[in-house]
């Protein structure tokens, strides 16, 4: 069972209290973009065995969206952080580096 702490209300939420929102930090390509960009935005997703960044919504609680950094194999949660960011905050990156030296995910490392 996955337990994530909502960064807004500080409640330790069980997985079943949350709605999964898929991969985090996607950049939207809408009208005016090329077919390749739109295809990448719409369909291409990471499927790592290791460090992964996801979006979750505290659906049964405060209703806010947030980000979570976790390990897909060990299920270890490195941290959660608010949704209003373009990339993971430094403390989250540092927490991951401490556990998984040399990690990388899309453009982040």
């Amino acid at each position: 069972m996955l337990i994530l702490t909502c960064p807004y209300c500080g409640v330790a939420c069980d997985e079943t209290e949350l709605s999964p929102g898929g991969e985090a930090h996607l950049k939207r390509f809408g009208p005016g973009s090329s077919d390749e960009e739109f295809e990448t935005y719409l369909f291409h997703r990471e499927n790592p065995k290791g460090v992964h960044f996801e979006r979750w919504r505290h659906a049964y609680g405060c209703g806010k969206w947030f980000h979570a950094a976790r390990h897909t194999m060990t299920l270890e949660v490195f941290g959660t952080y608010p949704a209003q960011v373009y990339e993971p905050p430094e403390d989250i990156k540092a927490a991951i580096t401490a556990k998984v030296p040399g990690w990388s995910w899309r453009d982040f490392s």
């Binding site: 409640v11 330790a12 069980d14 079943t16 209290e17 049964y60 609680g61 405060c62």
Partner: peptide, 24 residues
């Protein structure tokens, strides 16, 4: 509910919004 119900985690005077079986 999946909430942590130990008194240390949910003391008197704390509101917990959660799931109760199938409903909020």
């Amino acid at each position: 509910s999946p909430a942590d119900m130990r008194s240390a985690a949910l003391p008197v005077g704390v509101v917990r919004r959660t799931r109760l079986a199938q409903v909020p």
